[in-house]
Simulated scan of single mutants.
Amino acid sequence: MERRDLEIFFALAEELHFGRTAQRLHVSQARVSQSIKQLERRVGAALFERTSRQVALTAIGRQLLEDTRPGYDLIRAGLARAVAAGRGLAAPLHVGFTSPLAGELVMSAAHRYRRDNPSAGEVHIHEVPLGDPFTLLRRGELDLLLAHHPVREDDLGTGDVLISDTRVLAVATRHPLASRGCVHLDELAGERLLAPSGPAPAYWLDHLLPRATPGGQAIERGAQAASRQELLTLVGAGRGVHPTAAHEARYYARPNVTYVPISDAPPLEYGLIWRAAAHTDRVRAFATAAADLVRHDNGPANVCAPCR
């Protein structure tokens, strides 16, 4: 008995309509009729009662369905698991993120990844400390990380830009800049930039927190904080200011912190990062799902336009 004949039998047993069965399986209605007739000849009895108004299983048809469907489902599931294992998709995927919008995009990409790869394993998400972006990835505790670029690590690979966001300056509400429509990088010369603590590469942190203004004046670094909440507590207390992505103003609203757009800072661009030695089928499939998701939304998310 051909596998396709069983698929047609099972589909017709569910649809009880030759036309809908043909449409569901992308075959002709004649192919459905031919397959059922061949199966009935083999069994030696009618499997369906056909009238001008309805199609119904006979008693023998119902018995055949009950006897064969569980085994067929087990075979299909086993084949799917074998294919997934062969492609490296069966194992769980661990994906990290460094910002709330990146986390939302990871969740949406995970849904698309599972939809496009039904036999793929679960996707587990993990928030990664801003000051220590790569340690969990290098340990193998993460398969992928969605974080801001640039990444200049010989052992890490990167994907397409998935989020492009303008920057804002988090300041205390009583700070003189809080009432401004926007600020310029040159105005940071007299401020202390609060930084996340951790072993982040200097170039990576400097891209987030510039050490000098466009005019060449040094920008002082202030206290370090172990988490965003700690960092914003220091900002609200007037201990310093913190440049960050514009979308974080929505997620980390505080009554004593104001977010002021920075007019001339380059955007923060986020993309997927993985270990170069572990660029597996799972990693590639997830990266493809994320890129397809962004393309469907007409390119990288550009959260906020710069002030004028």
Results as ranks from 00 to 15, higher is better:
P196W: 10
S263A: 15
E15H: 14
P201H: 06
D132M: 00
Y113V: 09
G121D: 03
S164D: 12
D143I: 04
P118M: 10
I125M: 06
R53T: 13
L130F: 11
V128L: 12
L130E: 14
V106R: 05
L209D: 10
G240F: 07
T135C: 00
R87V: 02
A287V: 09
V123F: 10
Q224V: 02
P100Q: 13
L177K: 05
R239E: 12
L177F: 15
D143V: 02
R211Y: 05
P70E: 13
A212G: 05
A178G: 01
T158I: 12
A30C: 00
A84H: 06
H242L: 07
G190H: 11
P214C: 12
R254P: 00
H111C: 07
V43A: 09
Y259K: 01
A170R: 02
R282G: 15
V303H: 11
S28P: 00
A290G: 06
E153I: 04
R20Q: 12
S197Q: 12
A305K: 14
V183R: 04
R250L: 15
E269H: 01
A195K: 03
I8N: 02
R211W: 09
R3P: 01
T233W: 05
D281R: 01
P150L: 07
G181N: 14
R112C: 09
R275C: 07
S33L: 10
D5Y: 03
V55E: 13
R114I: 01
D155N: 11
E7A: 12
D73W: 03
A102D: 14
L144N: 09
L89W: 07
L12R: 08
L57C: 03
G103I: 12
Q38N: 14
G159F: 07
D143P: 04
R174N: 02
A265C: 08
F10H: 01
Y113G: 06
R174H: 13
N256H: 13
E49R: 10
A218Q: 14
D160F: 10
E15C: 08
E269M: 02
F9I: 00
H184R: 15
G121R: 08
E14V: 11
D206A: 15
L25T: 05
D5P: 00
P176D: 08
G271F: 06
L145V: 10
E15S: 13
